[in-house]
């Protein structure tokens, strides 16, 4: 197994006069799940959207194994599950899997309910069904790193454990960054944690750090 290290550094995002991020930083390594915590509006999603090229950014440095990444083709290195709907409404589910190079039936093996959605368009699925399909699409496709923005939102409680298992399984040969509002959801799956506060990212070593940064009381 090849080990890789992703470093995202010096992320600066401003909306007009408002500075959302002044020193965003996060790392990820093959074989590890990194959790990113932060209060609402702290800039967690902003950081990911910025590094993936979906948001205008003042500065961002992304490197894998010390080599800077061309952000025009960042999707080849990092697959990103955004917070909102990613798949076009009209695309058939099997077509989306084909484009991402994922075998649809391997996904059905994990979630048998989806065997009947093979020819369904995304708009025919419920919000939760579409969310689970998108999550698996990202996690089962090939890339050294995955970033998952609130992967547990909209997922049935019965599937949350399966998603957790899938994340742990995929992190054996990949690096995964996960963010969520829910501390318990993240801490149960992550090997190390970062927190965003006042535009800066800091590593979390203990629960006290989260209290110090105003994330927990």
């Amino acid at each position: 197994m090849d080990k890789h290290k992703l470093i995202v550094d010096s992320v600066v995002v401003r909306f007009g006069d408002k500075t959302v991020l002044s020193g965003g930083y996060i790392t990820s390594e093959t074989g590890m799940v990194t959790g990113l915590l932060g209060r609402n509006g702290a800039g967690k999603s902003c950081m990911f959207r910025a590094l993936m090229g979906g948001l205008k950014v003042e500065n961002v440095m992304v490197s894998i194994d010390g080599v800077p990444i061309d952000r025009q083709i960042i999707g080849q290195y990092i697959k990103y599950l955004p917070q909102g709907r990613m798949l076009p409404e009209n695309i058939k589910l099997h077509k989306a899997f084909e484009l991402f190079g994922v075998n649809y039936w391997s996904f059905v093996n994990r979630f048998p309910k989806y065997s009947r959605f093979h020819d369904s368009a995304i708009w025919e699925l419920s919000g939760g069904e579409a969310r689970l399909a998108e999550l698996c699409l990202v996690l089962l496709s090939e890339a050294p790193f995955y970033i998952l923005d609130e992967p547990f939102s909209q997922i049935d409680p019965v599937n949350i454990e399966a998603v957790r298992r899938l994340i742990r399984e995929r992190c054996q040969d990949h690096g995964i960054i996960v963010t969520d509002h829910n501390y318990d959801a993240i801490s149960s799956v992550a090997d190390n944690l970062f927190v965003i506060s006042d535009g800066y990212t800091a590593p979390v070593h203990s629960r006290d750090d989260l209290v110090r940064f105003g994330y927990l009381r």
């Binding site: 993936m52 090229g53 979906g54 952000r71 025009q72 083709i73 960042i74 999707g75 080849q76 697959k79 990103y80 955004p82 917070q83 909102g84 709907r85 990613m86 798949l87 076009p88 484009l99 991402f100 990202v138 496709s141």
Partner: peptide, 13 residues
């Protein structure tokens, strides 16, 4: 706002 990430994930900016 997140629809663009479908394309970005596939390597198209």
């Amino acid at each position: 706002r997140d629809a663009i990430f479908f394309f970005i994930n596939l390597g198209l900016s």
